[in-house]
């Protein structure tokens, strides 16, 4: 269902005569790929290596990097309580926001898939927040909504709950506002779920209802299992994305990490270290740690997937 390397299939398409005709294409390939190759070396691979090197140095941008061995990593893992806090904040954010977001996305996709009139419009309306979600305008709005005199308190007042709490000002709740923002933008995974739902053969449902299975039963026995590859896809995507959250945290947290650093997501602390405190080496170490964590989490997800993802072509 999900495509992989093209080589597996392209060789099957070529006849022996065609393949030999194609071999001198190395020169052409180089030509076509040259922008990408340059980009890869200069903007990706080079910086990657350089940042690894930097992570072992003390570099403040004004003087040359000083080699300090594993100093940054030691400080990060054992000597920096703020770093630890940013890890916790990010972990909580990912662990709570992603499942919630996917749950809503799946729920809405299922509901919308029932052949309702005007599906395109409903779909567009539910997608709209996602479209705007990453903009700073929305983050500013969010700060307002959850302020002491903001929309949320107004709405609560309308239903009889008196509240003057500034939700973004209170460290117990502030991360929740950030999480809510992500959950609000469930449009993209929802659309992917919709596409996936459409691909489930109708016959399966028909035969199930002929056997007397109700809607809920059909959902759990047919829809969900058939959807697991899509759930997996969305999960990987959203987790990787959630680990890198920055803009909304920056704005909603007021440029710092919010009260008591309760909204200090990892990338925000990284930004502070690099661009406020001029500790480029330390920030590079932080970045590599993030890379390793994302890689590990993705790997674990892949490994776990064999237990719950059901591919229909296996």
């Amino acid at each position: 269902m999900l495509s992989g390397l093209p080589s597996r299939t392209s060789t099957t398409e070529g006849t022996p005569k065609a393949t030999s005709r194609r071999r001198p294409q190395g020169k052409w390939a180089l030509l076509f790929l040259s922008p990408w190759i340059v980009g890869l070396l200069v903007f990706t691979a080079g910086p990657l290596i350089a940042s690894l090197y930097l992570s072992f140095t003390d570099y403040d941008l004004l003087s040359s990097p000083q080699w300090i061995g594993s100093g940054n990593y030691t400080r990060m893992l054992t000597g920096d309580p703020v770093w630890r806090q940013s890890v916790v904040v990010t972990a909580v954010y990912v662990a709570v926001a992603v499942p919630l977001q996917l749950a809503f996305a799946l729920l809405l996709a299922t509901v919308l898939n029932r052949g309702i009139k005007g599906m395109t419009i409903w779909r567009a309306l539910y997608y709209l927040p996602s479209l705007f979600g990453s903009s700073i305008a929305i983050a500013i709005l969010w700060r307002q909504i959850f302020g002491a005199e903001g929309l949320l308190n107004n709405v609560l007042g309308m239903i009889g709950i008196e509240s003057t709490t500034s939700w973004i000002g209170d460290p117990h709740w502030s991360l929740g506002t950030l999480i809510l923002l992500r959950v609000w933008e469930f449009g993209s995974p929802m659309i992917i779920f919709l596409a996936g739902l459409r691909q489930i053969p109708a016959e399966l449902y028909e035969s199930a209802s002929l056997d007397g299975a109700g809607a809920v039963r059909r959902f759990f026995s047919i829809t969900l299992p058939m959807l697991t590859p899509i759930v997996f896809f969305n999960l990987i995507l959203q987790v990787i994305n959630a680990f890198q959250v920055f803009g909304s945290a920056f704005i909603i947290g007021g440029g710092h990490g919010g009260p008591g650093n309760s909204m200090l997501v990892y990338t925000l602390y990284l930004y502070q270290a690099a661009f406020n405190d001029f500790q480029m080496g330390y920030a590079a170490a932080m970045a590599w740690f993030l890379l390793v964590v994302i890689g590990a989490v993705t790997a674990v997800n892949f490994w776990l997937s064999r237990y719950w993802v059901h591919y229909s072509d296996e």
Partner: peptide, 27 residues
């Protein structure tokens, strides 16, 4: 949708270290 990342069909994580060799000159 944020930057989407399509996924390999295999269950193995592709090695990130495979391009280290190429990077040395740029490094």
């Amino acid at each position: 949708m944020k930057k989407g990342q399509p996924v390999h069909h295999s269950h193995r994580v592709p090695s990130r270290r495979s391009f280290l060799g190429m990077g040395l000159s740029t490094a």
